[in-house]
Write a protein that binds this DNA or RNA. Structure first.
Lengths: 338, 338
DNA sequence: CCTGGCACTCTGCGTGGGCGAGTGCCAACT
DNA sequence: AGTTGGCACTCGCCCACGCAGAGTGCCAGG
């Protein structure tokens, strides 16, 4: 068990290191923070903290830097989320106002988050699986070709071309549209498969092929788009990584381009609390020197998607967590209004 | 006027420098390329080339590297576009097949281009101004709320919410939908404003407000979306920039995040020929040490959008130009089919 | 106009010494 | 037992020096 003062020392080390980006020594610590003890005492504490694996020395006769474990303790017990200042809040709200559609909201959010945290921001589009169907539209574009448009309650729109086995009449399309909507409108996407199962039975044999094609495409879309879409921004902030960043930055950029990795990353976030994954807690190797701060957002009480930022483990956790939480709230609020 | 041999020397310098990333000296040149002259002769030629501003020395007693002007001459007169190999072509085609919608096509294209050229790829969505309207869909979602969905011949879909001043009947919506489509379907987007001008006149006074709201939103969408959307990828390739890249990479990443800059960049590309902008030919400062290779693509004979890559001025121009051209062709072809 | 030779000029790299920050440990003090 | 001042020690960083090598410019001769 660590004494209260040792925890304070750890907190001071994290804060100093985050600020200066340089290993922090015992003398500097006693000076900059109001610890009323001598450097020698701090040295003893540091030795103990190192023994426990919370801090480490880059090389003998250098100051200490926090380890992943040290950051973890800091985040869990030594820091509290720093709420954003009033002007910042105002800026956030102002920035989101004037978004014209969902693409725009997501785009603005990602830029906003990148600017606020000065890190790489990732925003996921509202998930289909947790949304409900607002409307299904069918458009006969050519004799044997139909366009299927899916609209969700979160404003997301997906479209697909459907090639039918034979020509379909306008009437059949209208009929199918009506039947489809009466069955699935207002329902959760996850429920759609059962709801449309025997839809083709209601149609004449000549249209059945086309109906089946449409239904198949619809189901396909649900599966495919479960792999969610996301947007990233603020990659220029990666250059603030540190002096040795040429080595670090590469795998990070690569990881960021792999949607799958990012989705997994965000997926681990619990719904409504800000989640922090530090360094090696991230499974992807390329992200072993980064931390991910993420949270779910949504218009109602349940999260429909996640957003977050990726930055160096040496980051301002309280500030970042505050910004992430605040942005998620405002976006959720904004979605609820539209 | 430069003699034939001097041009050869320039070509050799460019090729060597692109390959090795190191200043090239007179001796190495005579050895690696079949110039049947002595190093001393080459030195004289180099002096002349330097005099003319085609090459330069990073410092006295180092080899020469091409200047922007040198690359320009190389691209204009010394190199020809290198067509892609058959397996590469096959890979391109294969990679594009299986795209389910426009987002997917664009996404695949950008990844493809980044992989092929090992550089940063930029792909613009098919432009609205050069597309035609395939269909306009209106959905009454709530008494006074209508969703407007625009579908283009290139498969692009835009949607907007319209808040009407008062409740609208289903009938009015259906009527408006029919009238709208009969006027604008098949027409170019640029023609839409005149075509819908007096549309409200045909409606009863009670619906006129709603009609006007819809029309206004439609026109707004056209204006807003003229600022085109685009996607970038392959930023990890920036790390291959060079040894000094920490300094260079930052402004490039920043420039890449500014859509406006990129759009301008691509906008300068002539329709169907591959365009190359080298170093300082790019107006944006951050891109002064990069070259942009771009080209238009489209399903018909006219380009509907542009795509291209951004890389260090020291790039393999023939290969890059070949890849960009080929990808543009295949994407155009693919769009034509769907 | 080309070529071989030669002196010159840099950069890059490895070496070695001094400086300073920071440590660990110990003995003394509270 | 915990805290403190003192002290010797360890390294990383910086700089100056010197050397080797690559590449050049220029000149005189073919």
């Amino acid at each position: 068990m660590l004494s209260e003062r040792r925890l304070q020392v750890l907190r001071a080390i994290v804060q100093d290191y985050v600020g200066t980006e340089e290993p922090v020594g015992s003398k500097a610590l006693t000076e900059r923070h109001g610890l009323n003890v001598s450097p020698a005492t701090v040295r003893n504490d540091m030795a103990a903290l190192e023994e426990e694996g919370y801090i480490q020395q880059p090389h003998t006769s250098a100051g200490r830097i926090p380890t992943d474990k040290g950051y973890r303790l800091f985040v869990d017990r030594l820091a509290s989320v720093k709420p954003m200042s009033v002007p910042e809040r105002r800026a956030v709200q102002h920035f989101l106002d004037g978004a014209v559609d969902l693409d725009d909201v997501v785009g603005r959010t990602v830029r906003l988050l990148a600017q606020l945290t000065r890190q790489v921001a990732v925003v996921q589009y509202p998930s289909l699986t947790r949304s409900t169907v607002r409307h299904v539209e069918l458009l006969a574009l050519a004799p044997a070709r139909v366009m299927l448009v899916l609209i969700t309650d979160t404003g997301r729109v997906e479209q697909r071309m459907v090639d039918c086995p034979g020509p379909v009449t306008e009437n059949a399309v209208a009929d199918l549209r009506a039947r489809l909507n009466s069955r699935v409108a207002g329902q959760r996407f996850t429920a759609v498969p059962q709801l449309v199962q025997d839809l083709a039975d209601a149609f004449d044999a000549e249209d059945r092929g086309a109906v089946q094609a449409v239904v198949a495409t619809l189901l396909e879309t649900l599966v495919e788009e479960t792999e969610e879409r996301l947007v990233i921004g603020g990659t220029a902030n990666l250059t603030r990584f540190g002096h040795d960043f040429p080595l670090t930055i590469r795998p990070v950029l690569e990881a960021l381009e792999e949607q799958v990795v990012l989705l997994k990353l965000l997926g681990e976030a619990t719904d409504r609390d800000v989640t922090v994954r530090i360094g090696h807690e991230n499974e992807h190797e390329g992200l072993n020197s980064t931390s991910v701060v993420s949270v779910g957002y949504g218009s109602g009480d349940q999260a429909v998607a996640k957003l977050g930022v990726v930055g160096p483990t040496r980051m301002d956790y309280p500030g970042t967590m505050g910004a992430v939480r605040a942005v998620a709230r405002y976006v959720g609020q904004f979605l609820a209004e539209s």
